[in-house]
Each structure stands twice: as C-alpha cells, then as structure tokens.
C-alpha cells in the first residue's frame, strides 16, 4: 500500500485530484474499520458515560443525577467483595495460565514426535464456547455424579472429593481452574511463536560455553521471551478483571456471593435490578481499574527491561 501511495504522490502534481487522493488514501483504507470501531466501540463508550450520570430503569424517563451513581459505589458492599474476587481470580489465573502455557510451550518447542497433534489438542479448549465449557465443568465438578470426585474416590483419595462449587471456601478456586483450562492453549501458542524467534545460535554458543539447560532457560529463553510474556500477562490480566461467562453460568456469583465478580455484579445491577445508570458507572470504574492495572503491569515489566 505504501508503494502505491508513494507512486501516486510522485506522478501527480501538487494540488491535483490524484495528489489529494494520494494524501487521503491512508485514511480511506482505515475508514471502514474506523466506522465499525466508532459504531460498536466508541459509540457505546460515550453512551455509557452519558448513562452513568442518569437514573434510568428502562421504564420511567431518565433523570440526571450528576455523580450520584459514582458516589454510591463507595457504599456498595458487593463492590469491594467482587473486586477482591477479581484480584484473587487474576492472581490465580494469570499465574496458572502463564506457568502452564510456558511449560507446555517449552516442551512442544523440542523436536518431539507428534508435536502438531499435541499442539492442536492442547489448543482445543480455546475454540470451545464458554457455555459448553461451563456446563461441562459443572458436571465434572458435581460432587455426586462428577468424574473428578469419582476419580479421587476410586484412587482412595476421598479427602480430595470436595463440594467444588457448593463450598464457599473453594468455589472461586474451582472457577479459576476452569479459566486456566480454557485459556492456557492460547497463551501457549503465543509463547511458542516467541520461542521460535529466538536465534538457535545463542543456544549453540551457550552450550559451547558449558551452560546447562537451566542456565539457558534463565539467561537466554526467559529474557528474550519478555515481550511475549508482557503480551500474555496483559491479556490474561485484562481477561481476569473482565471475567463474566464462567462465574455467571457455573455459579451465578454464588454460593452466598463466594464467586461474585465485578462483571456479574454489573450485569445484575443493570439487567436484573434495572439500574442502568449505576451499572454504567460501575462499568466505568472497572474500565479505569483495568487500565490502571494494565498500565502498572506494563510499566513494571518495561522498567525491568532497563535493568
């Protein structure tokens, strides 16, 4: 595209239609995407901001309430609880997904037989729908009929046969496992792509200098994977703060709010309690939190780069 533009500019005298078109062409190319982005992203974003300063139940006429919806967030007990769960969820899923994905990517990066098969198999959960996965895992977790408890019991590990989704102490952990299972394949593929960009000469040189496998991992692989790691952690972190499908389908935020997260809380406030304005305000707070957390994480990881 760049060469076409350049050629139009070179051949057309300044001020001619051709010249103007040449100047405009980059914008014309991005116009369709920009229109779509404006309609489906910017529009709702602005609409949400307007909604956040209104009180509207979908029936009565909207009333302007200024920042009242935002003030209200501070007295909403569930917000603190849901945010805590989001943080725990983020810690669990980010750590689990990154460690597992990196481990599997390192394994698959070896010249092992059937690599394509394993790679495809491990990626499968990523393409499955959230609903399917949530229902599937609900049954796996079923304390009476589920495969997980049956397996533990058949191995004589009865103490591990737990009330996975019904116990307030472990329900959130059970959901974290599902999220890790759903997404590790995605992060694994990104790690794999990153691993394949590392020049083999570096490993050859390290081996000649007598570096062990562990030293190669620590001093070559991990440092050079840092850009990929940043992408993986950022995506994973943002996903954890926005998580909705798995807790909504599997536990509806229960039992007794033990798996309540911000997105479910926002949904309930909006579509079950018809507080669309308050729900929009909560959404904006979540947006700010995700942006801050992601920015902080990017800053931390890039500052380590300088070291």
């Amino acid at each position: 595209m760049a060469s076409i533009t350049t050629s139009v500019q070179r051949d057309s005298p300044r001020g001619s239609w051709g010249f103007r078109l040449g100047k405009l062409s980059p914008y014309l190319w991005i116009l369709p995407a920009l229109v779509l982005y404006s309609v489906f992203k910017l529009g709702p974003l602005i609409g949400g901001l307007v909604l956040s300063v209104l009180r509207w139940d979908g029936i009565e006429d909207p009333v302007f309430v200024g920042l009242q919806n935002f003030e209200r967030i501070f007295s909403d007990d569930i917000v603190g609880l849901a945010l805590t769960h989001n943080v725990l969820y983020a810690l669990g899923t980010v750590t689990g997904k990154i460690v597992l994905a990196l481990f599997l990517a390192l394994l698959l990066n070896q010249g092992m037989r059937g690599r394509a098969f394993y790679r495809t198999s491990l990626f499968m959960p990523v393409v499955m729908s959230f609903v399917v996965i949530s229902i599937l895992w609900s049954w796996l977790y079923n304390p009476d009929f589920g495969l997980i408890n049956s397996l533990f019991k058949s191995l004589g590990l009865d103490f591990l046969a737990l009330n996975w989704l019904g116990d307030t102490d472990i329900a959130l952990g059970a959901l974290i496992i599902v999220d890790i299972w759903k997404w590790y394949g995605f992060h694994m593929v990104i790690f794999l792509a990153g691993l394949q960009t590392i020049p083999v000469e570096l490993y050859e040189a390290a081996r000649i200098d007598g570096a062990s496998n562990r030293q190669q991992l620590r001093y070559i692989t991990l440092p050079l994977l840092k850009p990929v790691m940043v992408v993986n952690v950022t995506l994973s972190l943002a996903g954890a703060f926005n998580v909705f499908d798995i807790p909504f389908i599997m536990t509806q935020g229960g039992p007794a709010n033990a798996t309540m997260v911000m997105a479910v809380h926002i949904y309930l406030r909006g579509f079950k309690f018809y507080r669309f304005g308050y729900s929009a305000a909560l959404n904006y707070v979540l947006l700010v939190i995700v942006t801050l957390v992601s920015a902080l994480q990017l800053r931390l990881m890039s500052s380590n780069d300088g070291d």
Partner: peptide, 11 residues
C-alpha cells in the same frame, strides 16, 4: 443432600 449448593436442576 451434602452437595445441595453445587447441584443444578438437572443434577
């Protein structure tokens, strides 16, 4: 039943 809070309607 012990699993009451983790039992959906089908279960």
């Amino acid at each position: 039943i012990d699993s009451v809070n983790s039992m959906d309607t089908d279960a």
